[in-house]
């Protein structure tokens, strides 16, 4: 006779619950987006009655989300891997400035793009080496890098705004393949690549392991140090891409560009469900986080409201999102555990 002796868990049920948790959060963020749009319709009914304006405004929101969205994808990886990167804004600035010096511009668009990406990646790599092999806490190492990289950017640019005279670069922001801005296409590609990397590759799986339980990751034979280093390099790479995108939008670069991007990126990742302690997070959630912020910015712009109020609302949204998450987290896993 075959007896069933106490299976440790009922099949499939927990899996469903986990899926629900992520889906629920994303649904919540979509709800917030819809709510913001409704607020827009109520406050500016005349604008919303014009379908062309609505379409263009929608594309504007996406375009504004594009550079910060790319940075957020990198940030999400770093946070899932158990770190934090405070230097992203500064890396964008140094990459932007370096790629728009007269010398670099003389190599043409290819040289500028190459420079931005290499500078971003190398600065990220320096972060990674300091953190993984120098055993610095990522908060400290990237804080130092934030200050130093902006300083270097100011040094290189002589505190001047560097105009990009390269038409190929400047055209990136205005090209619209299939009616959608190229910048939005770039964001889409980065998000999809990020999603695949996180969910479908060894690299992504190891990122979760390194952030969630570094000891277990080490015992499983993962080179935790090298992986940590690569995560910061990845974040730097995303910053390099974003630098080109911003440069093209402004047709210039300066040491103060991408100001406070680190805060926006962290906030977007967090309200998208990435755990600051590492080991958990989603790319899609982070994307929604970015969209919520750029929709708010847009809402304030079309209503001609001051940015101070906007920042207050942003802060409120971050707190509310984290509170909601904590509440759900606690009711799920209970006070006593973890």
């Amino acid at each position: 006779m075959t007896t069933q002796t106490a299976p440790p868990e009922a099949p499939t049920k927990p899996e469903r619950r986990k899926l629900d948790e992520n889906a629920l959060r994303n649904l919540g963020l979509v709800g917030v987006l819809i709510l913001l749009i409704i607020v827009g319709i109520i406050t500016k009914p005349d604008l919303y009655s014009d379908p062309t304006w609505v379409k263009n405004n929608f594309l504007t929101i996406l375009q504004q989300a594009s550079a910060i969205g790319v940075v957020t994808v990198g940030m999400t990886f770093v946070i899932i891997g158990g770190g934090i990167d405070l230097s992203v804004g500064a890396i964008v600035a140094i990459a932007g400035v370096w790629s728009t010096t007269l010398a670099t511009q003389s190599y043409g668009a290819g040289g500028m793009i190459f420079t931005a990406i290499i500078v971003g990646t190398v600065v990220g790599l320096i972060n990674g080496v300091l953190i993984a092999y120098g055993k610095l806490v990522s908060f400290i190492a990237t804080l130092a890098m934030m200050v130093a990289a902006r300083g270097l950017a100011a040094q290189i640019s002589g505190k001047q705004t560097q105009i990009s005279t390269n038409s190929t670069i400047n055209d990136i922001a205005s090209t619209r393949p299939l009616g959608i801005p190229l910048l939005v296409w770039i964001l889409a590609v980065v998000v999809i690549a990020g999603w695949v990397l996180l969910n479908r590759t060894t690299f992504g799986r190891r990122t979760v392991a390194v952030g969630g339980n570094p000891e277990a990751a080490r015992l499983a034979g993962i080179n935790v140090k090298r992986h940590t280093m690569l995560l910061f390099a990845l974040s730097g790479l995303c910053c390099g891409i974003a630098a080109i995108m911003l440069t093209s939008q402004a047709t210039s670069a300066q040491a103060a560009m991408a100001n406070l991007y680190e805060l926006d990126a962290i906030a977007a990742a967090i309200i998208g469900g990435t755990l600051l302690s590492g080991g958990r997070g989603t790319i899609v959630g982070a994307l929604f986080g970015v969209l919520v912020f750029s929709t708010i910015t847009n809402l304030f712009a079309i209503n001609n409201l001051p940015t101070e109020v906007q920042n207050m609302v942003k802060g409120g949204i971050i707190v509310a999102a984290v509170l909601i998450q904590q509440f759900r987290f606690q009711s799920l896993t209970q006070l006593f555990k973890r």
Binding site: R205, V208, A209, G279
Partner: peptide
């Protein structure tokens, strides 16, 4: 116990020596 809570049973079992093709996990 040296498992990663947020990975699945299969992912934990093969952590560190994942079954892959060109870096992509074969789920």
């Amino acid at each position: 116990l040296d498992l990663v809570d947020d990975l699945s049973v299969a992912e934990n079992a093969f952590l560190g020596h994942e079954d892959t093709r060109f870096g992509f996990t074969r789920r």
